[in-house]
Design a protein around this nucleic acid. Structure first.
Lengths: 338, 338
DNA sequence: TCCTCGTAAGATAGCGCTGTCTTATCGAAG
DNA sequence: CTTCGATAAGACAGCGCTATCTTACGAGGA
């Protein structure tokens, strides 16, 4: 009498499934992985046996044997923010039902921290990585390259070959806002931004370029590196107004700042949009309810996640991907604040 | 000449570290895991060899061999919400530097979905699970029990033996709010809640109990199962006011609802707190800036994550844990809205 | 001096899968 | 009727680590 399986997990293994189905272990393995060279009759036998035993594959064994896990890593610059949450949710919803684990890495808008995360997460041999934007350290790029992990970039677009990206044009969005404020008759326009990352900068560039093209002064801006917050929005608005009392329209790089500014304006008795118009970015749920309701750019956050995840699935399946760039656009939602 | 290591990952392995350090593989393994029975001299030799080779342990192999992964699963009812984000961040900050992977499961306030997540995540043999609250299906409980995974429960407290919990008393918090509103001279008080979960219900119970104890009518409430949102807060406030125009104080089960109500009141020209006082729950960042600033309960979300993670570490280390219950308390932040 | 015992190091044997090579089977071509 | 190639199924080995058992060794007691 041997003390069988003392170290085992107690769960049914592939070998047991194979035995019950009357096939070899490797055939059972292939059947469950949809390898096409298996007789459909055997496949269904294996499927039944698997179900009968309540078999669940052991991901660790799978990873060890194939040198590639079933984990997809998603790196985002922040979590304290509806944007990425919705994107993450969408990614989860696509990938989890298909058996992938989703690992979230928050790099707090720090390229250095992102590099560290990449280094650490590569240890688990992820089968794919979803990244935010293109702005990262050279070392990060090299690590990804060297490990041959499929990557999909979210939130921005590029024309570069060999790069998969899902998002929209930050610059165009900024330009649309500029034209909207101009159409409202505003002429003394400013860009207010915090938490400078590549996307925020690009939005501002689009905004200022459109102003310049319209022959309007595009030099007014108040840009700080601090983390964005509602409180900061109020402060920045107050500061801008002291320095430039003539300002009659502001594009805030995100809704949080705009919300803070709305509260501050309310406290100071400044009429919005009468004296000054506000436009935000991202269209957070609150923006449709705040007084006055905030004009904003609705970004396709959820769709970015969904499409990025599907693109990753295609890459993992080894499919030929024609469109390496998926432009999901954006929408200007005009409300009371402008 | 053998085509050595064709399937290998190319990364250095424990065997190479052992060879370089001049010890057996198992000794190297023990040295790197801080098993105490290894000669300190050998430990440092192994450490050096490991560093020299840039060795990173393979988590899959480790999991397979030990039948336990380095992953900690965290199950939360929602992500669209600052609360859990901050808690998750804190958990990450504690566990990741110690080599654990943190897997997040969002069960969308659904016990059924939570059960499914538990079932699925057990496949990866997590070394621990962090749960939100105690309210789950019998099957979930059995699964956790049967798999002998250490569990820590967050956000609520219990006196039950053998259950580790980190949080605060939801009921007491509700009671504190009731007493605060009473102290403000309000007498027609209502509880407005959405997204009913165990904690929201408990808050309401504490609130109503405190009212009853003070001899005040505790029957006024508007409670709906829909997902909580800013918009819903406005609607519920409007509906309540039509049905009970005499209401002079409302406890909203969370800040989102309260924010929506503030906007709605503003639109209707209703004075807050003059005619009616508002109190929220959670103290989201926005609550300190909205007009009027919102009185709320500041919950120790970050600390809950931190303490829960440390408790988990203690359990994983096999330490003797004396206090199975960690009460982190809460704080009533009184502002303009009451 | 011999023997026991506690401790540290090593040898061994897997954990549960999948990559790769080999073998069986069958139909088509010569 | 034989040979060949394509295809499906299986045998085999091993991914990189750790649990477990075994051995070596020195200290302490009889």
């Amino acid at each position: 009498m041997r003390k069988e399986a003392s170290r085992a997990t107690g769960r049914p293994t592939l070998a047991e499934v194979a035995r019950l189905a009357g096939v070899s272990q490797i055939t059972a393995s292939r059947a469950l992985r949809d390898v096409p060279t298996v007789d459909p009759v055997l496949v269904s036998k294996v499927r039944e046996a698997s179900k009968a035993l309540g078999y669940v594959p052991n991901p660790a064994a799978r990873t060890l044997a194939s040198a590639r896990s079933q984990s997809v890593v998603v790196l985002v610059p922040a979590l304290s923010n509806h944007l990425f949450i919705e994107t993450l949710e969408a990614i989860h919803n696509v990938l989890r039902p298909r058996g992938y684990d989703v690992l979230i890495g928050n790099f707090h808008y720090s390229r250095k921290e992102e590099e560290e995360l990449i280094r650490n997460y590569l240890a688990i041999q992820p089968c794919g990585i979803l990244l935010t934007g293109f702005d990262r350290t050279e070392a990060s790029r090299r690590l990804l390259e060297a490990n041959k992990v499929p990557c999909v970039h979210m939130m921005e677009l590029t024309k570069a070959e060999d790069i998969f990206s899902v998002g929209f044009s930050q610059e165009d969005a900024g330009a649309v806002i500029a034209r909207h404020l101009l159409a409202r008759g505003k002429r003394r326009l400013a860009y207010v931004a915090a938490q400078l990352d590549a996307r925020v900068i690009r939005r501002g560039e689009g905004f200022k370029r459109a102003l310049a093209e319209a022959g309007v002064d595009a030099s007014l801006e108040l840009v700080v590196p601090d983390p964005s917050s509602v409180g900061l929005g109020g402060e920045l608005f107050d500061r801008l107004l002291r320095q430039h009392p003539e300002v009659d329209g502001i594009f805030f790089c995100n809704d949080d700042l705009a919300h803070g500014a709305i509260f501050e304006a309310q406290r100071q008795g400044i009429s919005v949009p009468g004296r000054i118009a506000f436009v935000g970015f991202n269209d957070l749920p609150m923006s449709a309810h705040i007084v006055p309701r905030l004009t904003s750019i609705r970004t396709p956050r959820e769709d970015v996640g969904k499409h990025a995840a599907h693109l990753m699935l295609a890459l993992l399946a080894g499919a030929e991907v024609r469109d390496r760039t998926i432009d999901l656009g954006f929408e200007l939602v005009v409300r009371e604040s402008s």
